[in-house]
Amino acid sequence: DMPHRFKVHNYMSPTFCDHCGSLLWGLVKQGLKCEDCGMNVHHKCREKVANLCGI
């Protein structure tokens, strides 16, 4: 059981939050991507995600 390793990410195409399902808005640093499993989340959704990475 490992925690997610979220890192700020710049998305080049429209991407949706894997937690709430809404679009990650903006041009740069729109959200966070787990370096291990690739989960994408809003900055505000980070604390709502279970801290178990499903690598």
Results as ranks from 00 to 15, higher is better:
19 H>Q: 11
46 R>F: 10
7 K>L: 10
54 G>P: 14
12 M>E: 04
10 N>F: 05
38 G>I: 06
13 S>Y: 12
32 L>W: 11
13 S>I: 10
46 R>D: 13
42 H>K: 05
33 K>C: 14
8 V>D: 15
32 L>D: 11
54 G>F: 08
35 E>T: 14
26 G>F: 03
43 H>P: 04
34 C>W: 00
23 L>M: 10
39 M>R: 07
33 K>E: 13
18 D>S: 10
34 C>Q: 01
23 L>G: 05
37 C>R: 00
36 D>I: 05
38 G>N: 12
31 G>W: 01
23 L>P: 06
1 D>K: 15
48 K>L: 10
2 M>W: 04
23 L>H: 03
28 V>M: 15
41 V>K: 05
1 D>Y: 04
2 M>H: 14
50 A>Q: 08
54 G>L: 07
14 P>M: 06
50 A>S: 10
51 N>M: 02
52 L>W: 15
25 W>Q: 05
36 D>H: 06
14 P>G: 05
27 L>H: 02
7 K>Y: 07
33 K>Q: 13
51 N>R: 03
20 C>H: 00
16 F>N: 08
50 A>K: 13
35 E>P: 09
2 M>E: 01
53 C>Q: 12
33 K>F: 14
8 V>M: 14
48 K>D: 09
10 N>G: 06
42 H>M: 04
39 M>T: 13
8 V>K: 05
27 L>Q: 03
46 R>G: 08
44 K>V: 08
43 H>K: 10
42 H>E: 04
18 D>G: 12
38 G>Q: 11
16 F>Y: 12
30 Q>I: 02
29 K>N: 09
2 M>T: 09
10 N>E: 02
32 L>H: 14
36 D>T: 06
36 D>R: 06
33 K>T: 15
54 G>T: 09
23 L>F: 14
4 H>C: 04
31 G>T: 01
9 H>N: 12
49 V>N: 12
37 C>K: 01
14 P>V: 08
33 K>P: 00
6 F>T: 13
4 H>K: 03
21 G>L: 11
9 H>G: 12
26 G>E: 03
52 L>F: 14
1 D>M: 01
25 W>R: 04
12 M>W: 10
45 C>N: 00
28 V>N: 11
46 R>S: 10
47 E>K: 08
30 Q>H: 02
20 C>S: 01
11 Y>D: 01
44 K>N: 05
38 G>H: 11
14 P>I: 13
12 M>P: 10
1 D>S: 05
15 T>A: 06
9 H>L: 12
27 L>V: 07
54 G>A: 12
45 C>Y: 01
10 N>Q: 09
20 C>T: 01
48 K>I: 11
8 V>A: 11
37 C>P: 01
3 P>H: 15
43 H>E: 07
32 L>Y: 13
39 M>H: 08
54 G>K: 06
38 G>R: 12
44 K>A: 11
52 L>M: 09
21 G>H: 14
45 C>P: 00
8 V>L: 05
51 N>A: 05
49 V>H: 13
9 H>M: 14
9 H>D: 12
40 N>L: 02
6 F>Q: 05
9 H>K: 15
12 M>N: 05
12 M>C: 08
20 C>G: 04
37 C>Q: 00
33 K>A: 15
46 R>V: 12
40 N>M: 05
47 E>H: 07
